[in-house]
Design a protein around this nucleic acid. Structure first.
Lengths: 159, 159
DNA sequence: TTCGATGCAAATAGTTTGCATTCTA
DNA sequence: TAGAATGCAAACTATTTGCATCGAA
């Protein structure tokens, strides 16, 4: 699902701050919801709903996958989380970071890396000039080969 | 599924030429396979597997969806067809056109448009310089707002 | 007369949803 | 204690696959 809901607050630096921010929004704090927050902050990078539900590989109490999806959605509406579709496979969720509004995902090694705001702005300017297109690399990442895989000459799908 | 199989031949200008090219590849010509070709050439733009199976809205004899997927895959391996994932929803299949190796898809109105080879090359150069990234907009399109929707101020999802 | 291709149905992955129950504020 | 959130299961979309049968070369 795609969101164009209410205005997002600034992201919270840690779990307690996130809890406070969510409470301020009138949201309740349950075990399942706290798990999602804990995993997201502990991971420090993109995670799938499945990974969250598994409690980061069993280190935390696992939760229902359906509830995890609902909570990730809630957190996204609240402006704490964003998700992106990295090609095939499940969506990747991460803490929202205004400094890195874009995502690039390598089709060869599968790793995804953030695109910093200045670089993103430059890319968007080129796309605007060249195609008249207002590009977004947040929800659907930039896909291709990362510097490492491109250098190694890994094959790319045909155009 | 992703393909990095054999070398693609040049695309065929019409259905008879495509049939000949496929026969030359040792492929057989069945009613179901011919339907896929007819729809692809008649549509002149991207179509979903479902649309192909429906015989372009009932104007042609419908076919089994599973067989359509298999045939689209076969035609893609043969180099006549490419498909792209335009955000959410089903994949879009089209006749391969070396002159337009990229696709841009509007998240607002849903329309997708080809990216011409020179423009694509320019974009790729910028991405290479700026991020070291070897981008591909063929299998996963460039997503954002098309000139029309961007001008109309249609809302874009949050970054 | 072979395999390649089909139709049908079942399986799969990822995600959403209905509903009765539980728990937070 | 009202309403939010949960757990479970069923539904859903897009796609793949197993298999017996059929048909093109």
């Amino acid at each position: 699902v795609t969101h164009s809901h209410d205005v997002p607050p600034l992201p919270a630096p840690d779990v307690p701050a996130a809890v406070t921010a969510l409470r301020a929004r009138g949201l309740r704090m349950s075990a399942a919801r706290r798990l999602v927050l804990e995993v997201l902050y502990a991971a420090g990078g993109p995670v799938t709903a499945e990974e969250v539900a598994a409690g980061l590989g069993g280190r935390m109490t696992a939760s229902d996958l359906g509830s995890v999806y609902r909570n990730l959605d809630t957190l996204e509406r609240a402006g704490l989380v964003v998700h992106a579709h990295a090609g095939h496979g499940p969506a990747e969720y991460r803490l929202r970071n205004p400094g890195t509004p874009g995502v690039a995902c390598c089709e060869v090694c599968g790793r995804s890396q953030p695109i910093a705001a200045p670089a993103l702005a430059h890319l968007q300017a080129v796309l605007r000039d060249r195609l008249g297109w207002e590009a977004s690399f947040s929800h659907f990442p930039l896909l291709g080969r990362c510097p490492d895989c491109a250098g190694a000459g890994a094959p790319l799908r045909r155009g």
